[in-house]
Design a protein around this nucleic acid. Structure first.
Length: 260
DNA sequence: ATGGCGCGTCAAACGCGA
């Protein structure tokens, strides 16, 4: 089973690329972020025509996440637990059944947090803490689960072409990197790191300053796997194809293959 | 050092992203 994550930066602006990529890559499950659409406005029909079931958690204008799956999605939950006041749509999870097994999949859009020293960064820190607590509760189920999405965290210097450019950025702050290590300390596996331990694996290239042409990228889109999922991990990679198309998202899909 | 781009927004600059 192949599970991909892709921040598409606007589902309506990217629907043609999304359709084309689904038709060729045919991932079993896709976690989308930054759909920038309310649920009623999400273009589900062309995706359903390609065989995908659709679950969305959108909002007007900003943020918004979704899960697409070739098999029906069950037990869909919207919103990250831990703060009833949080109105931003950044979390959706669902159960994906296979003939012989199951996996719980979450699509997350962790707050950017820039600029540092503001309430935006404080919100990011609170959100990371809520995510940590939710991971703990999911781990207690002792199930295979995959927490995939745009974490807005550069875990280590090898995850940036030019790490020195990011030292003042929320994505590379000590608080963000510490939160990442706390996720790992729970026993979760960073799938790309496990399969491709070297430098130079990126998932985002800025639109500006020819970042794509210079391969001035960062790795911020991740799959974290529970031990029961990590046991089944057979491959993980970045699909750089969509980033090189006309009118691309600034992120490109990252995928994992599980033997289930 | 800064901005350089792109999306969505009751429609023209602006918020936001990373």
């Amino acid at each position: 089973m192949r599970i991909a994550t892709w921040n598409i930066n606007g589902v309506k602006a990217r629907i043609a690329q999304l359709e084309g990529w689904l038709a060729s890559a045919r991932p079993d499950v896709v976690c989308l972020q930054e759909i920038k659409s309310v649920d009623e406005g999400f273009p589900a029909s062309p995706l359903e025509a390609l065989g995908y079931h659709v679950a969305t958690h959108g909002q007007k204008g900003f943020n918004g996440v979704a899960i697409l799956s070739l098999t029906p999605l069950e037990d869909v939950k919207r919103g990250l637990p831990g703060d009833d006041e949080d109105v931003q749509s950044r979390y959706i999870e669902a159960l994906v059944q296979t003939p012989t097994s199951m996996v719980r999949v979450a699509s997350i859009y962790l707050p950017n947090g820039n600029p540092i020293g503001t309430d935006k960064f404080a919100y990011k820190c609170r959100w990371m803490d809520r995510l940590h607590r939710h991971m703990q509760s999911l781990l207690a189920l002792e199930e295979p689960f995959v927490m995939a999405g745009d974490y807005n965290i550069i875990p280590e210097p090898i995850d940036a072409k030019q790490p020195e450019l990011w030292v003042e950025d929320a994505l590379f702050q000590p608080e963000s990197r510490t939160a990442w290590r706390r996720f790992l300390a729970l026993g979760l596996t960073d799938a790309i790191r496990a399969c491709q331990p070297g430098p130079g694996v990126y998932s985002f290239w800025d639109y500006q300053a020819g970042a794509w042409q210079k391969n001035n990228g960062i790795r911020i889109d991740h799959h974290l796997l529970s031990p029961q999922a990590a046991d089944r991990l057979v491959a993980a990679d970045v699909d750089k194809g969509p980033r090189g198309t006309e009118k691309p998202s600034d992120h490109t899909p990252v995928w994992i293959e599980l033997d289930i």
